[in-house]
């Protein structure tokens, strides 16, 4: 599906391609979400602005905004929204669409961490916290990685002393038994969703 088809109706695109996107039109622009967000001071656009921009067809500006990536998944906006919009989920969905369309701001740290987290859990079926931490420290290269790891050394040592971080996890660590079934399941799920949401 070509993007041009959607440019005049970004709202329609969001309704079809973003999880819980059909709720966007219900926003009444009260701004309670913006006032409730713990990272509200750091949003480029508040949620209600994002929703109005979607209705105004500002596709590029919405999908390249850093706003969705500030979501901590605290669900404060959901429980306070007088129209009951699942705002957290819409933000997650917009972020995912932005990623699939290649419009995420460059070096967005939460986008990078989110992808590292997903790749990490997919590999063995369970999260390997040691590899996840190291992956994040070393995302900008080896020398920056060493600096990051050194800066966080006392945190890491404290965790190891309390037996809540195991250096041996680097060897592989925990995982599920049926990895092949698990991988086949996720591959199929992605194919089905890509086809339904025209993401491929």
């Amino acid at each position: 599906m070509s993007i041009e088809k959607y440019t005049r109706s970004f709202l329609k695109e969001v309704e079809e391609r973003v999880e819980e996107g059909h709720w966007v039109k219900m926003c009444m622009q009260c701004g309670v979400c913006a006032g409730s967000c713990p990272l509200g001071a750091h949003w480029e656009h508040t949620p209600q602005k994002i929703f109005m921009m979607i209705r105004a067809g500002k596709r590029e500006e919405v999908l390249s905004s850093d706003s969705m990536w500030m979501c901590t998944s605290c669900y404060q906006c959901i429980v306070r929204c007088p129209r009951k919009l699942p705002i957290t989920h819409i933000m997650h969905g917009l972020a995912y669409l932005a990623k699939r369309e290649g419009l995420v701001p460059k070096n967005q740290p939460t986008a990078q961490f989110g992808q590292l987290f997903w790749d990490n859990l997919v590999k063995t079926g369970r999260v390997n916290e040691l590899k996840l931490s190291l992956g994040m420290y070393f995302k900008d290269g080896f020398s920056q990685g060493i600096k990051n790891a050194m800066a966080m050394q006392s945190v890491g040592l404290g965790m190891m002393k309390a037996k809540r971080l195991n250096p041996m996890e680097i060897m592989g660590g925990h995982g599920i038994k049926d990895k092949s079934g698990f991988h086949a399941m996720l591959k199929k799920a992605r194919e089905l969703e890509d086809s339904r949401r025209k993401l491929a």
């Binding site: 699939r100 999260v127 799920a189 969703e193």
Partner: peptide, 26 residues
């Protein structure tokens, strides 16, 4: 037996909706 990761919240960035739901459904 053989439970897997739920995807947590941050899983949205890499996973999308259906793969994430599939994790919990498994």
């Amino acid at each position: 037996p053989d439970w897997n990761c739920c995807g947590a919240s941050i899983g949205y960035a890499g996973g999308g909706e259906l793969p994430r739901v599939a994790l919990s459904a498994r």
